[in-house]
Nucleic acid binder design. Structure first.
Ligand code: FES
Ligand code: FES
Lengths: 147, 147
DNA sequence: TTTCATGTAACTACATATGTTACGATTCGG
DNA sequence: CCGAATCGTAACATATGTAGTTACATGAAA
């Protein structure tokens, strides 16, 4: 099954934008991510609808972050992307007649809901500012290693 | 993304087998689950390789449970199925050069690993015997409601 | 007015799960 | 022993969802 990598993509894009002066074009972001510029527009468009970024058309246009990096969490981004399905595993039949299958579904659903709740908690805990700081730390580490 | 429903399927099948005298054929299980008998064989074959069920060919053959219901947990079944990918969301690039992407991946991986660990813990806690008991409870409840 | 950029629709390419067909191998009942 | 029942497995078909691509309209700046 092909995994949805949009959360990873927009995070990468947003952090590059945060480090960058002025707007970045879909083309530049696409080259950065190794993705198609139309796909970038498609995905960033969802963030725009959520008010997290803004786009300007025409000469020297592109994408800009329009939210506070300290506020925007992974959870906000996940929601902006439409809360895509998290799990690649699911029940065969969501509304079974059979009591056996109902018992199975109840057990699986319980476990998956708990895992999802934990994941959302962790997502809410991590902001773009946190990731930017982590990047800065890694950058300093690399320079220290090289010297 | 199309979700993998094999865990749900084998649980349903195993519980029906547990309630059933003698072996059950792939055909019978397929009718029960609403699945193709070849798919049943394909999936149950993985459980056979893990020693959880046995198959007999020929007249009055079929599938039998060959393990203790109190021992076999959801986790055992997940492992028997080859530990398929749990998440439908992933990193765009698993081995990135870019430090920004490394920081992003690290944060996402941490959250997903924690969620996966919790899920595996819950899976390990639920045995086939537990599910069979839950089925019995639901069965009694339905009869009580009908009376 | 030309060029650069987003916005969007429509189609293609690809991956993966499941379904289907076909046939061989094995076991049992008569 | 023969034939029906059943698993084992390969090969192919179908369905679904993500990402890529092409095409063109819209808008803004030089
Ligand atoms: S891809 Fe992150 S550096 Fe351009
Ligand atoms: S499908 Fe569970 S009762 Fe047959």
């Amino acid at each position: 099954m092909k995994r949805d990598s949009r959360l990873s993509s927009v995070l990468h894009a947003l952090l590059h934008m945060a480090e960058h002066e002025g707007p970045m074009t879909s083309d530049a972001l696409g080259r950065c991510l190794g993705a198609n510029p139309v796909v970038v527009r498609r995905t960033m468009g969802l963030l725009r609808e959520a008010g997290l970024v803004s786009a300007e058309r025409g000469h020297s246009g592109g994408w800009r972050i329009s939210a506070d990096l300290r506020i925007v969490s992974l959870r906000h981004l996940h929601e902006a992307l439409g809360e895509p399905a998290i799990f690649a595993i699911g029940n065969r039949n969501e509304v079974p007649e059979c009591l056996v299958e109902q018992a199975v579904n109840a057990a699986l659903d319980k476990a998956f809901l708990e895992a999802e709740a934990l994941l959302m908690e962790r997502f809410a805990d991590v902001t773009l500012a946190d990731l930017a700081a982590d990047f800065t730390r890694r950058h300093a580490e690399r320079r220290a290693t090289k010297d």
